[in-house]
Design a binder for these strands. Structure first.
Length: 424
RNA sequence: GGAAACGUAUCGAAGUGGUCAUAACGAGCCUGACUCGAAAUCAGGUAGACCUUAUGGGUCUCGAGAGUUCGAAUCUCUCCGUUUCCGCCA
């Protein structure tokens, strides 16, 4: 959520910066500005009335104790009450209009982020490892997976429908090994391991920015209460601190959370229908940082390098892309994507997205930092990054490590987890 | 699943319709005094949000929401959560 106070004083700048994202935010921000202006005007009015009413009500108590007559006071208070009630509805309505707009405004892109309309204008920052030259035509991961009988799409669709898969045999073990490998790596480097709940409430979905705008992409569980399947470990991990005041000495807070993530993939019908690139259910190790606002961008570089370390150790070719304003997520102020080389597609595909949301989520989730007793509370910067998407990492391994005879060599760092050096 | 109790500040806890909500009483924490230093003791201080032409003034918050009332932490309803006992279960 953007800071309403900032919008009041920098309306035109806010419009200009938001409009570097897709869509036109001019009217929305102008409306917001007007609603807020009227809201504050009415709020003052009503607060004055309430002050008067509070004072008068106190008099009743005193008069009664002293045995005085209270009729006059009752009359004057009845009038006040009517006035307040009439005005209160207006104020609440205005307040709701302000909040409704604030809820759906995305974060301001950081000033230095490259301005562009979509992913074609993203900026490649660095490329690590040359893609391997194949002396045969590389197969796709789903061909490899089916041929080796480690991925089963047909039966998964019998059980659950489209966009589900069954990992079998060494496929299942590879997925499990990757999770363990990633968690081991990050926890050795200062991240606290975390396995949060897979079902979250709507306040949590609001706190990290999924709701209200992206409600249609969430799986909803309707039992005797309403819960949502975790769409990314970012949601439960960051919401651990919702409505909490964190002591400055606890910073930086760094978690690596492993969860299965669930997404409806609403609006991506027809995209990546083959294979496991885009599933309703997938495993992900997520890195979360909560840091002082002055450290946010240093932390973004470090977090990105931490995610890159996974690819480096697996010896997978990748590049780092700075997303342009047109391709950034809702809450992000600046994002680096890691894209891994996919031989069968002859291109790089996203395998991690590392963002600094600055105080956008902190403000929504009401997470604050106390530096000292006589300083006002501050919102921290909150960062998230995949470290990595496990299913897509498995895809990259199957494809990049495939051999001409249809077998797949296991990357060295995974062999102790896999207990074998080849899938055949 | 059955039964009951409870939700007040950092924690414990009092308050059961106005006179104690910045909030009693304990504890913790911070500052100062005493001390070579520490402990002990003593003194003071220890919410947050919002509005405001602001060395000041005001509104809101007792799990959340709604209701009754001139007035609600206190009474009523709904929801959420926690704990205990029984049942069931990995």
């Amino acid at each position: 959520m953007l800071d309403i106070k900032y919008i009041r004083e920098h309306k035109d700048e806010v419009i200009k910066r938001l409009n570097t994202r897709p869509g036109d935010y001019t009217k929305l921000v102008e409306d917001l500005y007007q609603y807020d202006l009227q809201y504050r005007k009415d709020l003052q009015l009503i607060e004055n009335l309430k002050a008067k009413s509070n004072q008068t009500s106190k008099l009743i108590g005193e008069y009664k104790r002293q045995g005085k007559d209270t009729k006059e006071i009752f009359d004057s208070i009845a009038n006040l009450k009517q006035e307040i009630q009439a005005k209160e509805k207006e104020v609440q309505e205005l307040q709701k209009q302000v909040k409704d707009i604030l809820d759906i405004l995305p974060n301001l892109p950081k000033e230095d982020v490259v301005i562009g309309k979509d992913e074609t204008e993203n900026l490649v920052i660095r490329t690590v490892m040359e893609p391997r030259k194949f002396n045969f035509t590389p197969k796709s991961h789903y061909e490899i997976g089916v041929d080796l009988d480690i991925l089963d799409f047909d039966r998964a669709s019998k059980i659950s429908g489209a966009r589900f898969v069954i990992y079998k045999g060494l496929g299942a073990r590879l997925e499990r090994s990757l999770i363990a490998f990633m968690m081991d790596l990050h926890s050795k480097r200062g991240y606290t391991e975390c396995m949060p709940p897979y079902m979250v409430n709507s306040q949590s979905m609001y706190g990290t920015g999924q709701f209200p705008k992206f409600r249609e992409d969430a799986f909803q569980v309707n039992d005797d209460r309403v819960l949502f399947l975790n769409p990314t470990a970012e949601v439960p991990t960051i919401n651990m601190y919702r409505d909490e005041i964190i002591d400055y000495s606890k910073l930086p807070i760094k978690y690596c959370s492993y969860t299965t993530a669930f997404r409806k993939e609403a609006g991506s019908a027809g995209k990546d229908t083959h294979g496991i690139i885009r599933q309703h259910q997938f495993n992900k190790v997520e890195l979360i940082n909560i840091v002082d606002r002055k450290d946010g961008y240093k932390a973004l570089e470090e977090l990105t390098e931490e995610a890159e370390e996974v690819l480096k150790q697996l010896k997978l070719p990748y590049h780092v892309v700075e997303l342009c304003t047109g391709d950034m997520g809702f809450g992000s102020a600046k994002t680096y994507d890691l894209e891994v080389w996919i031989p069968s597609e002859n291109r790089y595909r996203e395998i991690s997205s590392c963002s600094n949301d600055e105080d956008f989520q902190a403000r929504r989730a009401n997470i604050r930092i106390r530096k000292s007793l006589n300083e006002p509370l501050e919102f921290p910067h909150i960062l998230n990054g995949s470290g990595l998407a496990v299913g897509r990492t498995l895809v990259a391994i199957l494809e990049n490590y495939q051999n001409e005879d249809g077998t797949v060599t296991i990357p060295e760092v995974l062999r102790k987890y896999m207990d074998t050096d080849i899938i055949k």
